[in-house]
């Protein structure tokens, strides 16, 4: 199994532990990740708010870099916003010939071109669909017994494109969590919005949305995430959210590959657990025993 790997900008900075744990878990599973040396930003949610064409060209540039490498494989993308943006290109190319021409006219500036056809897939899709619970279970040598994990999917991993799970009531993380020997925390919030970029521009709303999520996670030991933006909104503002909501809402929030890596017996350094903003002492103690 091999994939083009598009880590995206967040995974070089605030979500470094997501990048490192993803690579570690993929290596343990024998999955090859092909790097694109010269990759650039996908435009995040900024390009689409300023220019339609730019929001297509920025992700398309990365697809064009992959197309040039002449390898027959899909992209695997851990960040939900990057995933949405890269996938958007092919969704639009198929129904808009004029757009295809415009994108390629711009890419020509860097002597690149993209005809379409490379599949962009979310890391969660690859873990749940291609790799699957059985293959993950076979690698588990340190079960996460007694751990109750709330699966959090967020928005853009599922909507508008998804296709590998129900966009309103996703379930695909559950067999993976069970494969690790952990228990699923049942909650109705898996596909609800964390507020995303509103945490920067309209903080009071994002704090409200995040607060509802953290409240519903009570009773779980940990929330599992698959997006750097969701992760940051859930783990970095817990003190503030607790103030706003008037109750203690602190809880561990870890990336799904970090939890998988723990069950594979990888150590804290290999999974960069020291970089997490919300990895509580109670969870640490529980994992030690």
């Amino acid at each position: 199994m091999k994939y083009f790997y598009y880590s995206g900008c967040s995974l070089e900075g605030t979500a470094l532990e997501y990048d490192i744990s993803t690579r570690a878990v993929m290596q343990a599973l024998g999955v090859e990740l092909i790097e694109l040396d010269d990759w650039t930003c996908c435009g995040a949610s900024a390009a689409e708010a300023v220019s339609e064409l730019l929001s297509m060209v920025l992700p398309a540039r990365n697809l064009a870099l992959a197309a040039r490498m002449d390898q027959d494989c899909d992209f695997v993308i851990p960040c939900s916003a990057c995933y949405l943006n890269l996938r958007k290109v092919d969704e639009h190319l198929d129904r808009d010939e004029g757009l295809r021409e415009k994108i390629n006219a711009v890419l020509q500036e860097e002597e690149l071109s993209y005809k379409g056809g490379i599949k962009s897939r979310h890391l969660l899709d690859v873990l749940a669909t291609d790799i699957g619970a059985e293959m993950i279970k076979a690698k588990v040598n340190r079960k996460l017994s007694g751990l109750r994990i709330a699966p959090y999917y967020g928005c853009q991993a599922l909507r508008p494109y998804g296709g590998y799970d129900d966009p309103e009531e996703p379930r695909c993380m559950e067999p993976l969590i069970e494969a690790l020997g952990a228990e699923v925390h049942p909650w109705p919030m898996g596909a609800k919005c964390c507020g995303a970029g509103l945490m920067t521009t309209k903080k009071e709303i994002a704090l409200e949305l995040t607060g509802e999520l953290l409240k519903a996670a009570k009773g779980a030991d940990c929330i599992a995430t698959v997006c750097p933006m969701c992760q940051m909104n859930l783990d970095s503002y817990q003190k503030k959210v607790s103030q706003v909501k008037g109750e203690d809402l602190r809880i561990s929030v870890l990336y799904l590959p970090q939890l998988i890596g723990m069950a594979f017996g990888l150590n804290a350094e290999a999974l960069k657990l020291d970089l997490n903003m919300a990895y509580t002492d109670s969870l640490r103690t529980k994992l030690k025993n």
Binding site: C155, P160, P167, K192, C193, A196, L198, T201
Partner: peptide, 12 residues
């Protein structure tokens, strides 16, 4: 319009 967080629920 500025309060949209692009969750895509309405589109869905």
């Amino acid at each position: 319009f500025s309060l949209c967080s692009s969750c895509y629920y309405c589109t869905l």
